[in-house]
Amino acid sequence: MATCQDDPGKARDSEVTAAPCEGNAVLRGSPLGAPADMDRIVTVQDIEQVLKLCKGSHYDHYLPTADWEVRSGRRLRVFRWSHRTRVAE
């Protein structure tokens, strides 16, 4: 089975920095089976582009929204989960 772990052009979940008080974006929503109410604060390179996170054999896609949120004095861009795609073999 192909994985996205060796794809240098895509963000791996471990490369998206998660920190409780830092970051520039908040990820909302999730695929079925994951907690829908769990927000993740992360740091992304470009807050204007679709975020494609590598999750082993698939990618989770998050779209930037027009919404912003302030947490701990930091302005965060809100990204909403859009869909999941499988890695091509």
Rank of each mutant, 00 (worst) to 15 (best):
S57V: 13
T17I: 14
V16C: 00
A36L: 14
A18G: 12
I47A: 04
P35K: 12
D13W: 06
S72I: 09
A34K: 12
Q45A: 13
R77Q: 12
D37P: 09
A19I: 02
D39V: 13
D7N: 15
V42F: 03
S57A: 12
Y59A: 00
M38D: 14
A11G: 02
V26K: 01
I41Q: 14
A88I: 13
V87Q: 09
A34Y: 13
A18P: 04
T17M: 10
T17V: 12
E22P: 07
Q49Y: 01
R12K: 15
V26I: 14
V70S: 02
A2H: 06
K52Y: 05
S30E: 13
A2K: 07
D13M: 06
D13G: 07
T65G: 02
T3A: 06
K55N: 15
C54R: 13
I41T: 13
D60C: 00
D6Y: 03
R75T: 01
G23C: 06
A11L: 04
L51T: 07
D67N: 10
A2T: 05
L76N: 05
A2W: 07
R77N: 04
S30D: 15
T43F: 03
C21L: 10
A88H: 07
L76S: 04
T65M: 01
K52P: 03
V50N: 11
P35W: 04
E22H: 07
D46V: 12
R86A: 08
E48M: 06
N24W: 05
V42Q: 02
M38R: 14
A19T: 13
L32A: 15
C4P: 01
M38K: 15
G23N: 06
R75N: 00
H83F: 08
A19Y: 13
L63S: 01
R71P: 04
C4T: 11
L27W: 00
E22R: 11
V87Y: 04
A34F: 14
L27M: 08
C54Y: 09
A2P: 15
H58K: 15
R40E: 04
R74V: 14
